[in-house]
């Protein structure tokens, strides 16, 4: 009995070590991304960033738990680190965005609180990725560009779950280089996406290219 208990404790301990500490850094062409600064994209658009927020989460099995989702906010450095459990095979599996169950379950605590400005009330569902700012290329009111990318219903769901494979170091860096995020984006043509649909799916595919896991270090 005592031996069993010992093993249980041991197993529990090793399990608790099997976590990855994710760290998110925001860059532009490799340099730290600054507020109130103009940047020029590959397509030639001048941009100034105001908001960059997105969800990362662990894909739910049957149940949703609020700890399994995390909202990363460029303007809040304390959100740039997040500790994620690895799966049974020691693999790091995370979702950029939130899988459908997060949108339909009744868990609305923590970062899943709909009052945090990442929720569409009128048609319901979380916004997975929100990027806003200013650009003379955007022919809109006050030259604002706004990408609110979301949607959880097939075939227009934009969440992207990635298995990064086995991880042996606990510190994992994910860099978000806005140069790469906007590499394929033409701000003159597409500067406001506020609803789920084809356009949002296409934009998410383009932007997610800028999210790169640097690997364990």
């Amino acid at each position: 009995m005592r031996i069993l208990l010992f093993f249980l404790v041991l197993a529990n301990q090793t399990f608790s070590q099997e976590k990855a500490e994710l760290n998110f850094t925001f860059l532009f062409q490799g340099d730290s991304l600054q507020e109130n600064t103009w940047y020029i994209t590959k397509k030639g658009d001048s941009l100034k960033f105001e908001t960059i927020r997105f969800f990362v989460s662990v894909p739910p099995k049957n149940e949703v738990s609020a700890d399994a989702a995390h909202l990363v906010d460029w303007s809040k450095p304390e959100t740039h680190n997040w500790s994620v459990p690895l799966n049974e095979k020691r693999e790091l599996v995370i979702t950029y965005g939130l899988e459908p169950l997060y949108h339909t379950a009744s868990v609305m605590e923590g970062d899943l609180d709909p009052s945090l400005g990442m929720y569409w009330a009128w048609q319901s569902g979380y916004i997975h990725l929100k990027i806003e700012g200013e650009s003379p290329s955007a022919n809109t009111r006050n030259n604002k560009f706004q990408y609110h990318l979301g949607g959880y219903l097939d075939p227009f769901s934009v969440d992207k779950t990635i298995n990064f494979g086995q991880i042996y170091e606990s510190n994992v860096q994910i860099k978000i280089d806005l140069w790469d995020v906007f590499r394929l984006v033409n701000v003159k043509k597409e500067n406001e996406i506020m609803i789920p649909g084809k356009q949002a799916v296409r934009m998410m595919k383009k932007m997610i290219n800028g999210f790169v896991l640097l690997g364990a270090y």
Binding site: H103, T104, P114, S124
Partner: peptide, 13 residues
Amino acid sequence: DGGVPALDRQTIA
């Protein structure tokens, strides 16, 4: 339009 999938989420609208 059934846009809200759960009663608990309806009140937000």
